[in-house]
Design a protein around this nucleic acid. Structure first.
Lengths: 341, 341
DNA sequence: GGAAGTTTTTCCAACGTTGCAAATTCGTGA
DNA sequence: TCACGAATTTGCAACGTTGGAAAAACTTCC
């Protein structure tokens, strides 16, 4: 079928190693030989067999990306960024879905034989917890994303959840809001995005001398639009007074905004709303949604770079560097939903 | 590092071929031998090297999925469905992004050496056109999705654009609407989703005896929310009268809905709105968006199945079957945006 | 003209697996 | 005890590539 080194060598009248040398731009090849070989390569449309190369070198040029689900916008946009970053490093990305917080499937993924032809994995768990930290002890390069597990035996790339949430809340305070509801808390959670962002929210209140109020905290089970809308409706129905809402992610904020509008409350005149994530969608809602860009692109780039470094280091038997944690820069993006009135 | 057949064979005191036979459940292996080998496999935690297997067999178990961009919700949801379908066939998916309708990159993708370790490709072009049909003549199994190229030399899986668009329009007519605007037409296009769906819209009007009207057709450059909103605003500003809007996809419809609400028009009381695609998002907008499910899951499943068949057929040197076109079933989904008032 | 050094080319083995065919062992019946 | 067929195990080559080192060809300089 496809031409091999042998075919090219036969056509050019040289040994296969010489062809290999030409392909790899080895310098000690006579110009005339090089040219002859190149002509043969073109004529036969020779393409190196990557599988054979992988077998020889032990590297495939493929990295895995395991995430909950692409139909969750945040992860789709993350995957987009990871693929682009990988392409710049000549790596290709194989995507695996573990479901919406399915701990079992996440754990199983770490030993999935399907990862065999991968040089390393970028792993974004949603169901595993700190107790599962030992599971991250794997024999291949691994970079973990997210807020489920900290201080593990591998590199970790994540956002400054607390600081970013604090900044989002301060953004609301700066526009004169004082009764600030928060939507998306998880009952009893002390780690994870929800807890960290809630903590940032509390810090901002404390710093501004605004008393915390349990009735302003909207609890949800999952971070989907529906949950955001329901939590908001409950709060409205309970007669809680508020002049701003912080959705712990954009999806929740958009759901909350829907519930506000249903109830006849105007955004931002009656209630200001801010989200978290900077999804593409936040730019197009009505009104456009203020949010925090947690540094998604930087997360993707860092994760790919660090993974690539680990892969390279592993190949050269350098003594492995200690695992590191990387935190990305964030920025508050003010849009219509928090405009001054 | 990792254990190989040799290591297992040495430990079990047999030849590597016997180990291979055990791994493959070859029947003529003495029970006692089998057990001894299996113990060795467990003890050494032996996992077959997929790369070596691929080199030997010529199959990698990986399929490529080339699509414009994961940050476009439609493609993220398509990718989700493809990955799930592939998993059921024990295939793993490698995703490549070609950009938003970048013809050059799409053409380049077809000969991308990165596809080497792929057994076949599911390709969803957005920038190529019928003129590029010959580019689809590639030497690996290929399944094409979408509405850019028909009747090519490869299998094609797509939706019934015309019929589905006609059904969406008829849904509006059935609720008593007569002045039905359409948003998302492409100037001068005769093929592609826009043209086909526009044709379905026209057929529905014709069938109902409603005169076509050029002023009710909103043209856009791209199918994003912003374009939908702008086209809708232009139509409103021009004083065009209408009581319904058909967005040629959900994103356009959501943008149009935003423009309507800005202008103080109520959905569905003043204007009914329907979209196309059945994105997750359509379930959560305010009001929830009626739409057409074009059979996305079926498209993914069919594409993976057909590709897998071609891959298998290629391995057995069966004479290749003629390329086929597959069309999926659609269904109109009525939600709040077209509710009767 | 030939030694010494440099450039260019070739040879061989190995990466880990599997298909094929051959070799060995076993069981059965004469 | 031996022949014969079946069951079981093994050896070898090959998939296409690359690293290392040897071999061959060419230069340069005395």
């Amino acid at each position: 079928m496809a031409a091999t080194l042998h075919d090219v060598a036969a056509l050019a009248g040289v040994s296969i190693k010489t062809v290999s040398n030409v392909v790899h731009d080895y310098q000690h090849v006579r110009a005339s030989t090089r040219e002859r070989v190149q002509r043969a390569i073109v004529e036969l449309d020779y393409k190196p067999n990557i599988t054979a190369r992988s077998l020889r070198s032990g590297r495939t040029g493929v990295i895995g990306l395991a995430l909950p689900e692409l139909s969750l916008s945040y992860f789709a946009e993350l995957a987009d960024a990871v693929i682009q970053a990988a392409e710049r490093q000549s790596l290709v990305v194989l995507i695996e879905q573990t479901g919406r917080g399915d701990r079992e499937r996440e754990i199983a993924m770490l030993t999935n034989p399907r990862l065999q032809l991968t040089d390393g994995l970028i792993f974004s768990p949603l169901g595993m917890s700190q107790d599962d930290v030992d599971r991250l002890n794997v024999r291949y390069p691994l970079v973990v994303l997210g807020e489920r597990i900290f201080g593990g035996p591998v590199d970790h790339v994540t956002m400054r959840n607390e600081e970013a949430a604090q900044a989002a809340t301060e953004h609301l305070i700066r526009t004169g809001r004082r009764r600030i509801a928060v939507i998306g808390a998880h009952e009893g959670e002390v780690i994870g995005s929800a807890a960290l962002r809630l903590e940032g929210y509390h810090r901002a209140l404390d710093a501004a001398g605004i008393p915390r109020s349990e009735e302003l905290v909207g609890y949800v089970i999952e971070w989907h639009r529906l949950n955001g809308a329901e939590a908001m409706r409950r709060m409205i129905a309970a007669g809680v007074e508020f002049d701003a809402v912080f959705g712990l992610n954009d999806t929740l904020a958009l759901g909350a905004m829907r519930a506000l509008q249903e109830a006849g409350l105007r955004v931002p005149q009656d209630v200001a709303v801010i989200g978290f994530d900077d999804l593409d969608e936040a730019r197009y809602s009505l009104p456009t949604l203020s949010t925090v860009d947690p540094g998604r692109v930087e997360i993707a780039e860092t994760a790919v770079r660090v993974l690539a470094e680990r892969i390279t280091a592993g190949a050269t038997s350098t003594p492995p560097a200690d695992p590191r944690a990387y935190l990305t820069d964030f920025s508050v993006i003010g849009r219509e939903s928090t405009a001054s009135v």
